[in-house]
């Protein structure tokens, strides 16, 4: 889907910035409640290139979800600089697709109508959006369930709908906050394979926050490991695996196993969670 990159207006501005899609510099985020101040993130700096797939792993409460929300402009940072497609992030960003841990679907809408919410909110061309929705429904294997309501779907299918919705407007950037966290292991593997394929086919820049080391390594070109609160970037691994990855072959490759073990040790050493 080469048209993905041409539809977004920021592409021209991004070119002279060496195609850096997300640029985070010295980011700090502190929440103040009545009782105490919590530092969620300190000194986070990260750049994500266009078309890259970056996974972020870390123990619970390390601020990785907060980091994603800051990039999306949903949470303001306390200090530091965040740029998306070359523009400073000051409010909610429109040039992104966001997938949440829960599917966050509208209960009263069927699959297709839920996906098309994106188009309605953005005033997209109706016919184009409908065609694109059909395409995505087919791509994610939701054919035959177009009018099913969310409560009639399994967790995996709900997440597919959420994924379709996040991709409908062909966003240059896809931010995913533990989208498969609530799924069973088998469904999760299938979704990983699908996400890998979708990323390959659309060339979208993806940032995936996850608890699963296997998921992070299988999907990511780079894996960012974070420390427990206050969240910092502990290490960034380059994943030395082929761009097109077969699930079974990748899982049993020595490169995968070594990297996964290394990350596991690192996470085990930096906290009790894993």
């Amino acid at each position: 889907m080469p048209e993905t990159m041409t539809t977004q207006p920021a592409a021209a501005a991004g070119e002279q910035r060496a195609a850096t899609t997300i640029d985070i510099t010295d980011l700090t985020c502190t929440f103040t409640s009545k009782r105490k101040r919590t530092t969620a993130l300190t000194d986070v700096s990260l750049s994500v290139e266009a078309g890259e797939f970056v996974s972020i792993v870390g123990p619970s409460g390390c601020g990785k979800s907060t980091l994603l929300k800051i990039v999306a402009g949903l949470v303001p940072p306390s200090s530091g600089d965040v740029r998306l497609l070359g523009n400073p992030v000051t409010g909610p960003q429109r040039e992104i697709g966001f997938a949440f841990q829960r599917a966050a679907l509208l209960e009263w809408r069927g699959v297709r109508a839920n996906i098309l919410l994106q188009a309605e909110m953005r005033n997209m061309d109706k016919r184009q959006a409908a065609a694109r929705a059909d395409q995505l429904i087919e791509l994610t294997g939701l054919t035959g369930f177009e009018s099913a309501l969310p409560h009639e779907l399994s967790g995996g299918m709900q997440q597919r709908v959420a994924l379709c919705r996040a991709l409908l407007h062909e966003p240059p950037v896809l931010l995913m906050d533990e989208p498969f966290g609530a799924l069973d292991a088998l469904t999760r593997e299938h979704m990983n394979v699908e996400l890998h394929r979708i990323w390959r086919e659309t060339g979208t820049t993806v940032v995936l926050v996850t608890h699963s080391i296997a998921e992070a390594v299988y999907l990511g070109q780079r894996v960012v490991v974070m420390t427990p609160r206050p969240g910092r970037i502990e290490r960034v691994y380059d994943v030395d695996l082929p761009a097109v990855r077969d699930y079974g072959a990748t899982m049993s490759s020595s490169t995968f196993e070594e990297l996964a073990r290394e990350i596991r040790v690192l996470l085990g050493a930096s906290g009790h969670h894993g």
Binding site: K69, A72, G73, L74, P92, Q93, R94, I96, G97, F98, F100, R102, A104, L106, E107, W108, L117, Q118, E120, M121, R122
Partner: peptide
């Protein structure tokens, strides 16, 4: 209303009125 739905609506660039009409009110 699920706060994630409101976040989602914000990333879609929806106006307050549209968020009300399509998400908050039916909810």
């Amino acid at each position: 209303t699920d706060p994630e739905l409101l976040d989602l609506s914000a990333t879609m660039g929806a106006s307050r009125w549209k968020t009300f009409r399509k998400i908050r009110f039916p909810n």
